[in-house]
Design a protein around this nucleic acid. Structure first.
Lengths: 126, 126
DNA sequence: GTAACTAGTTTCCACTGGGTAACTAGTTAC
DNA sequence: GTAACTAGTTACCCAGTGGAAACTAGTTAC
């Protein structure tokens, strides 16, 4: 990634990143999508995968993801009513992004373990 | 990405994604990093790139990013004091992730433009 | 003196992301 | 009847995110 002089290129990238972030941001959306990466799931199953999410937040974030067409919701009126959530093609198109995110998460953790997280010394140059 | 049966694999990915999110999350951090992708910059220059960020938030998020070793801060006591921010190797290691994020942002926008964002009809199956 | 440049800090306030807990509602099993 | 399963909803509360505006502080130029 060259430090190109293109001011417009930088602005374009800033716009694209903010477009993406608007949809993906928050504590729970990515984890929910990761969970659905392992097959279609019902409300309670996602809740079990991400055990510290509250039903309120899960419900709320599933609605948001559905509105943005990243997941689909299918209601089965079986014996006890069940609902199945699944990734749409658009949701599945997050595959590469998720892969990079996961790899970086692992990389970051390995870089950090054992290292103190203090502010680096300020370097004064004359 | 196969819907493998591995419950442990899913849990491992959930952990990795949440590790990464903890560092990257928020409205401003990714945009700041994108800006620094285009070369080392001073406070005022980043502010100019991301013109709707307040100095308070920029200062606060730069500190967080520095604490997590994603960026470095160098003070030059030149005529007017200047401060230069730069990506560390760890910050630069976000390259692939950023690339995927940007591409997905563009993809998402093109998928969405012209399409109404309403909740899909509920499909009832017997 | 005043203005302008640098890089922030401080205060005050609003919104909302998110947590907890209790509650709804329909069906099956006992 | 009660309990248990499904999938949520609702009400209340708090801490943190983020915005606006004013202010600090050191130096240079006029």
């Amino acid at each position: 990634m060259e430090p190109t002089n293109g001011k417009e290129a930088c602005q374009a990238k800033l716009r694209a990143s903010r477009d993406a972030l608007e949809v993906i941001q928050g504590k729970w959306r990515i984890p929910i999508i990761v969970s659905l990466t392992y097959g279609n799931k019902r409300f309670g199953e996602i809740k079990k995968d991400i055990d510290d999410i509250s039903p309120k937040m899960l419900s709320q974030e599933l609605k948001e993801l559905e509105m943005n067409k990243l997941i689909s919701r299918t209601l089965y009126d079986s014996m006890p009513v069940t609902v199945e959530y699944a990734l749409t093609p658009l949701g599945k198109s997050l595959n590469n992004l998720l892969q990079e995110l996961l790899e970086w998460g692992i990389h970051f953790r390995s870089e950090m373990t054992g290292k103190e997280k203090k502010i680096a010394e300020v370097v004064v140059q004359h």
